[in-house]
Each structure stands twice: as C-alpha cells, then as structure tokens.
C-alpha cells in the first residue's frame, strides 16, 4: 500500500470567496499582516502498489480537480 496526498487549490486569478471572507474575519479578530489566504482541499488516497502516479494524475484531471478553476499537486507519502 502507498499513500498519496493530493492538494487541490484554486488557480491563480480565480476568485476564492471562502478564502477572502476568512481573511477578512481574521483581520476583524485583530490579526494583522495577512497578505493572502486561500482555501483548498486535501485528498488522501491509499492505493495498491501497482497504481502509478500517472494514474493518480489522471484521476485528478478527470474528477478530483477541475482544471478550469483548480490546480493540484500530488505527494507520495509512504511506500510499504
């Protein structure tokens, strides 16, 4: 078994309403110096050893991320 962690984040230039509102809320709480806050998704994927990173990449392109608005990055965490 191996574990992949996939981070799905908003593409550069795509407005992130949840991130923007959270940034404002932090400012309202008195926190200063926050330049940018973006909210994305972490997807944890445990797969059999023969599932290649290329297949995981395909899963991301097809379903897990929407390439129109989102970027993704894949990290291999552990290999048994």
């Amino acid at each position: 078994m191996k574990r992949y962690e996939i981070f799905v984040t908003g593409k550069e230039g795509i407005f992130d309403p949840a991130g923007e509102q959270s940034k404002r809320a932090l400012a309202n709480l008195g926190y200063q110096g926050i330049d940018e806050l973006t909210i994305g998704k972490l997807i944890r994927l445990d797969v059999e050893d023969d599932v290649t990173e290329e297949t995981v990449r395909e899963m991301c392109r097809k379903l897990l991320a929407n390439p129109v608005i989102e970027d993704f990055s894949i990290t291999l965490l552990e290999e048994a």
Binding site: I14, F15, P17, A18, Q21, N66, V68, I69
Partner: peptide, 17 residues
C-alpha cells in the same frame, strides 16, 4: 454541463458566500 465540458467555464461559490 460545465463539469461535462459541454459548456465552458465553471460555477463557483457566490461572492458573498
């Protein structure tokens, strides 16, 4: 329809949440 790429673009969260 946008997810199926039958129409371009995407519908994201309303600006005011």
């Amino acid at each position: 329809l946008t997810e199926a790429h039958l129409l371009p673009g995407c519908l994201i969260r309303n600006e005011n949440l």
